[in-house]
Design a protein around this nucleic acid. Structure first.
Lengths: 145, 145
DNA sequence: CGCTACTATTTGATGACGCAACTACCATAG
DNA sequence: CTATGGTAGTTGCGTCATCAAATAGTAGCG
């Protein structure tokens, strides 16, 4: 049972990631980062919150954002009220990249999951998965996360 | 929905892996390797088949087995009929380590999954997950894989 | 104010893994 | 026998993520 989760995740993510990289030069984490920022208020998030969402350590986030900043998809902005925090902010460029990549992402999800599970089954799968600990209530009914 | 899979996998595996490492010095892949070998005929598998099972590349398997061999949990054995293949073979030591680690593994699975899903729901989750592509029909009804 | 405890972030060292290239071996065709 | 093509395994290198330690700022208490 656990092997299933592992293997399902492994093969599906590999599929998505390789297409995302090939077509848009974005890793899965790059994509998710843009996605979270796009949903966040003002397109900005504290790095520490991003780390939690992405299930990376803060150092992982530092390096991930290094790449996105270099690509011009995000910028950093200091927090006026608290000198410790810096925000990661989605740029207009980043928003465009996300829009482009979302199409690929959704298409692969549909191809990979949609063809094997009916909408009702997908719903039920999402519900069961959502009951597991550590699974955030993010992105409930859609494939694009 | 996809984020759920990713995150569920991430948090559950992290939990299992850290306990496995802390208590038995085995990574998740170490554990799975021993498990697959234990189930295989004669406790032996070709490295290439192990790679497929573990969803690693051959190079990953080479390095993984390097560690297990160094720890005395597996050995290598040449194939008499085909000079290209070498088998990974579970040692008696490895079998013992697997037995010990299995208890930890099962306990965590129970704690983490069992307390959130009923047996019927678990069954249904396993069924849905099993329908996804790339998910082998391994270890259907149990938690210990 | 000065101390202590806590939080956010970065950096250095390390480890796991994939990819590509390479070796060694097998199998088949001529 | 020998050339060609395919398969098993290893190794060098790059990437990405972790942990531990360092830095910088905040908050509360005497």
């Amino acid at each position: 049972m656990f092997a299933r989760l592992l293997h399902a995740h492994g093969s599906l993510m590999r599929e998505i990631e390789s297409q995302l990289i090939a077509e848009h030069g974005l890793s899965a984490n790059d994509f998710e980062t843009l996605l979270h920022l796009a949903r966040a208020d003002g397109g900005a998030m504290r790095r520490v919150d991003l780390a939690e969402r992405l299930r990376l350590t803060p150092s992982g986030v530092t390096r991930l954002l290094g790449g996105l900043e270099a690509a011009g998809l995000t910028t950093r902005r200091d927090c006026p009220g608290d000198g410790r925090v810096t925000y990661a902010v989605l740029t207009e460029e980043g928003r465009k990249a996300l829009r482009r990549a979302s199409r690929t992402h959704a298409a692969i999800c549909d191809a990979v999951i949609g063809s094997h599970l009916s909408p009702a089954e997908l719903e039920s799968l999402a519900e069961l998965l959502g009951r597991l600990p550590g699974v955030d209530d993010v992105d409930a009914g859609s494939c694009s996360g």
